[in-house]
């Protein structure tokens, strides 16, 4: 399968990339790792007139911890993030990075590309909700920072303006007594996730939840969050009963699409079991246990 013809540009700076995207107009598309875009081009679901290859722009691959703020360059690949020492103490992030698709896709796919694509079943847009991440963008009108909740608007739709690019993702290092888990169910490594659930929880003491962020993915047009479900847990004891109530509340807010990966009721059942499993792993990690738990495929 061949993509339709396009003109190719490889600018040497982010400023030049933005300028090219502005000049060439809406037929022009940025190309980062290409792991979402190239399959789309091959199937001719999109036929851009121009591709702006930003994949090798300098200064966008960093993964740093600056005063307990993690900063990840938009072009950091899933593989780099999965292996990065500065993130190894945040298992929800390494689990996610090391579980996306397969090793080959993780070599090329980038975090900036993933959130800019905003595929409703992809992992980064949902996962970053559990960390209240900020998305730093650069465009014709300069830089701006958008919270991930306001960045992902709808299925394949973000807050990015014309010729605007993601340059960095940042989030606070989770505090002490905080633990997280993000679990994906998929039919095979390279398959798109059927459904996913994520939770980052901070304990006040052994069994009391101080704060929590919950998210479901592939469960609606954008990552599903629920203030109501979080309120069930926040300030309360982490009993099985409360976890069940939180699961019910967030699943009630979901709207999974029936497709070849499963019916809506199958997906809701999977979301329930993934949510409970992720919650128990997150709580255990918050207590300081080293628990393995990540993407699952049969």
């Amino acid at each position: 399968m061949y993509p339709a013809p396009f003109r190719y540009y490889r600018p040497d700076s982010i400023e030049n990339a933005i300028q090219l995207l502005s000049e060439l107009g809406e037929g022009a598309k940025p190309l980062a790792g290409g792991q979402s875009l190239i399959p789309v081009l091959k199937l001719r679901m999109d036929e851009p007139t121009d591709l702006i290859d930003i994949g090798r722009l300098p200064g966008l691959r960093h993964i740093n911890n600056e005063n307990e703020i993690i900063r990840i360059g938009a072009l950091a690949t899933h593989a780099h993030i999965g292996k990065a020492g500065v993130i190894s103490h945040i298992p929800i992030v390494t689990d996610c990075a090391n579980g996306i698709a397969d090793a080959q896709v993780r070599s090329r796919g980038t975090i900036g590309g993933s959130i800019s694509t905003a595929d409703p079943s992809c992992d980064w847009p949902a996962l970053l909700h559990t960390l209240d991440a900020e998305v730093i963008c650069n465009g014709p009108n300069g830089k701006r920072t958008i919270n991930i909740r306001d960045f992902i608007l709808d299925s394949y739709t973000t807050a990015l303006g014309d010729a605007e690019l993601v340059t960095e993702i940042s989030f606070k290092t989770p505090q002490k007594l905080s633990g997280g888990s993000y679990i994906v169910f998929k039919k095979a490594a390279p398959a798109y996730p059927t459904v996913s659930a994520g939770i980052q929880i901070t304990l006040a003491e052994e069994d009391i939840c101080k704060d929590v962020r919950l998210v479901l993915s592939a469960a609606g047009p954008r990552p599903v969050t629920s203030d109501e479900a979080e309120a069930v847990l926040r300030g309360n004891k982490l009993t099985n009963d409360n976890l069940e109530k939180a699961a019910e509340a967030i699943i009630a807010a979901s709207d999974p699409t029936p497709d070849s990966r499963g019916s809506a009721s199958f997906k809701r059942s999977m979301l329930h079991s993934l949510f409970i499993k992720a919650a128990n792993i997150a709580i255990s990690r918050a207590r300081g246990n080293n628990i393995i738990g990540a993407h699952e495929y049969v």
Partner: peptide, 18 residues
Amino acid sequence: TIIVDGDPVKSCTLLAVQ
């Protein structure tokens, strides 16, 4: 699957220019 600069990649999902 081939190796590009040390990393395994799926060569059907890369442009040669990349």
